[in-house]
């Protein structure tokens, strides 16, 4: 008997150890960033005491101001646009007959599976064909482009659960096509829309590769600014770490808040 329980426990123990190991390697860079954001050293080779000065400098540093503003503007605007468009497209796709719906979902997933570098180059080519000057608008379009598929993917499961007769009933009771969407469909898929929006936002705010290929030499977000600084062989201010930790903490707080609220709502219902 003893032997049998031991035999059962070994796989479980291996699973546990590997899980711990995974968390260690996944969190190592995060810890390093946290440490560097409160380290007095500018270069980050050594520990020179605790400080919060980088968090203060973040709001005073003129070099970082522009990339930060660009990042936030792009993240907010692309999230709003991608969420609206993605939801409309998902509603349309869901209404299709099964075969066409599957085909549309396959197309939808192309940018999800495609490596970012391929997406980035593809967008760059389209922009050059249209003779768009690379900058704010091209980055915005690019972010909307890579975000929409994720919005569609997170709205779709909710739409599938929705009884199609509800919408028809709404129309019979006098809703117009549009008001039926707002009164019947949207309230039922709102959690999907919200998680799609959050996903779009978190991806836009940290994107590097696609922005890099679509932004040209002048327009920079934080990631491309960091890369450009490093490529020139210069080092950047540790305020960048502070920036990342703030964004990181705010993201966690928002997502935690949304999830807790949702859980509570589901419990009371």
């Amino acid at each position: 008997m003893m032997k049998k329980t031991l035999k059962r426990k070994i796989p479980k123990l291996i699973g546990l150890l590997l899980t711990i190991f995974s968390f260690i390697i996944i969190f190592t860079p995060i810890l390093v960033i946290i440490v560097l954001s409160v380290n007095a050293s500018t270069k980050g080779y050594s520990w020179e005491g605790f400080t919060l000065k980088w968090y203060v400098e973040l709001f005073q540093n003129d070099v970082m101001k522009e990339p930060i503003i660009n990042t936030l503007v792009i993240a907010f605007s692309s999230t709003i646009i991608a969420t609206v468009l993605g939801t409309i497209f998902a509603i349309g796709i869901n209404a299709l007959e099964k075969k066409k719906r599957v085909q549309m979902m396959v197309i939808n997933n192309v940018p999800v599976v495609n490596p970012d570098i391929v997406t980035g180059i593809s967008l760059m080519i389209v922009f050059s064909l249209l003779s768009f000057t690379l900058g704010y608008y091209t980055v915005l379009i690019a972010h909307v482009f890579f975000s929409i598929p994720y919005v569609v993917l997170s709205v779709m499961p909710r739409l599938k659960k929705l009884d199609p007769n509800l919408y028809e009933a709404g129309l019979d009771l006098g809703c117009s096509r549009i008001s039926g969407i707002f009164r019947v469909i949207i309230p039922n898929i709102s959690t999907g829309i919200l998680s799609g929006a959050l996903m779009a936002f978190t991806m836009s705010i940290d994107d590097f590769i696609i922005t890099y290929f679509t932004s040209g030499a002048e327009y920079m977000n934080v990631s491309t600014w960091l890369y450009a600084t490093l490529s020139r062989g210069r080092s950047f201010t540790p305020a960048a770490y502070a920036y990342n930790i703030i964004i990181f903490a705010v993201t966690i707080a928002i997502i935690l808040f949304v999830n807790l609220k949702r859980d509570r709502k589901e419990k009371t219902v």
Binding site: P29, I33, D206, V222, L230, T251
Partner: peptide, 20 residues
Amino acid sequence: MMIVPLWSNMLLRIIAWEKL
């Protein structure tokens, strides 16, 4: 907890390894 680290900037995570 496994998703959370992905919300940190990818470039900075790479730089963190570089520093380490």
